[in-house]
């Protein structure tokens, strides 16, 4: 938090589907330890934004820069050689290195983020093995530790996610994403599709892990209650544009844009 440079810096970013923009003129900076919620209804462009941030979609306009050291630099993660690099200029090898070491992605559907027929331990251990861990005992111990942190009983370590409930699958997915302690995690509606009680438990878990690890998170959600519970800042999107942004409780308590007022007034009071 005390670094004056953001971890992720987005300037006027946009993506076009044919002659129509999925999202456009999106700008924000994200610092370590910050959770940014992107809220909006279906078709608002929030998923397109997540797509370009995570390089699943091309950036047609503007820029997305990430703070890292050049591959040839000796700096490494903590090195002084870190600079804000334009993601589109990085090689595929470099981007994949970032996915292995610095970034995570929690999918709405756990089947997209897990190997459903590999054991929970194997799923959580894979990022370690991908980063050169070659000691079975250490890999397993770390996987056990992380399954415990996401509240999966130790005796389930050798069971496959295919045999798990929806909530457990999401927790395994979170463990798999956090085991190598990334700096930036993208989350795409991680709690929707779960029962309400399971949702609350998962949100609480995400919130405490994010705080403990000092992660930066971009979480896409249609649920303002989710944004309220775990995010520091919120971007409200409509028709591909950011129509309001700021401190989450200010956006929700004192919304300025007509659309945000409408969204906020539509929340069911709990």
């Amino acid at each position: 938090m005390n670094d004056d440079r953001p971890l992720l810096s987005v300037t006027d970013a946009g993506h076009r589907y044919g002659d129509r923009f999925g999202c456009r003129n999106v700008s924000f900076d994200l610092w370590p330890g910050e959770v940014l919620a992107v809220v909006g209804e279906s078709g608002s462009g929030k998923s397109t934004l997540l797509g370009i941030l995570s390089q699943r979609l091309r950036v047609d306009e503007g820029s997305i820069r990430y703070r890292t050291a050049r591959a040839d630099g000796s700096g490494g993660r903590e090195g002084s050689a870190e600079e804000l690099l334009e993601l589109s200029t990085l090689s595929e090898r470099e981007v994949r290195r970032l996915w292995r070491t610095d970034w995570g992605f929690v999918h709405q559907n756990a089947a997209e983020g897990l190997r459903m027929h590999v054991s929970a331990g194997g799923n959580v251990g894979e990022p370690l093995m991908a980063n050169g861990w070659r000691h079975y005992g250490q890999i397993r111990a770390k996987a056990e530790e992380w399954l415990r942190r996401v509240e999966i009983p130790a005796e389930r370590i050798d069971d496959t996610p295919a045999t798990f409930s929806g909530g457990m699958r999401q927790r395994v997915q979170i463990a798999r994403n956090l085991v190598f302690e990334p700096r930036l995690v993208f989350m795409d509606e991680p709690t929707s599709g779960l029962d309400v009680s399971v949702q609350a438990r998962l949100l609480d878990l995400i919130r405490s892990l994010v705080a403990e690890l000092g992660l930066a998170v971009v979480i896409v959600t249609h649920d303002l209650a989710v944004a309220r519970l775990i995010s520091h800042r919120t971007l409200v999107m409509k028709d591909g544009a950011v129509i309001e942004s700021g401190l989450t409780d200010r956006v929700l308590d004192d919304p300025q844009a007509a659309y945000t007022q409408l969204l906020v007034s539509s929340i069911l009071q709990g």
């Binding site: 700021g246 401190l247 409780d249 200010r250 308590d253 004192d254 300025q256």
Partner: peptide, 9 residues
């Protein structure tokens, strides 16, 4: 109060 805490602009 809310302006001082930042909930309101």
């Amino acid at each position: 109060m809310k302006m001082v805490y930042g909930n309101y602009g």
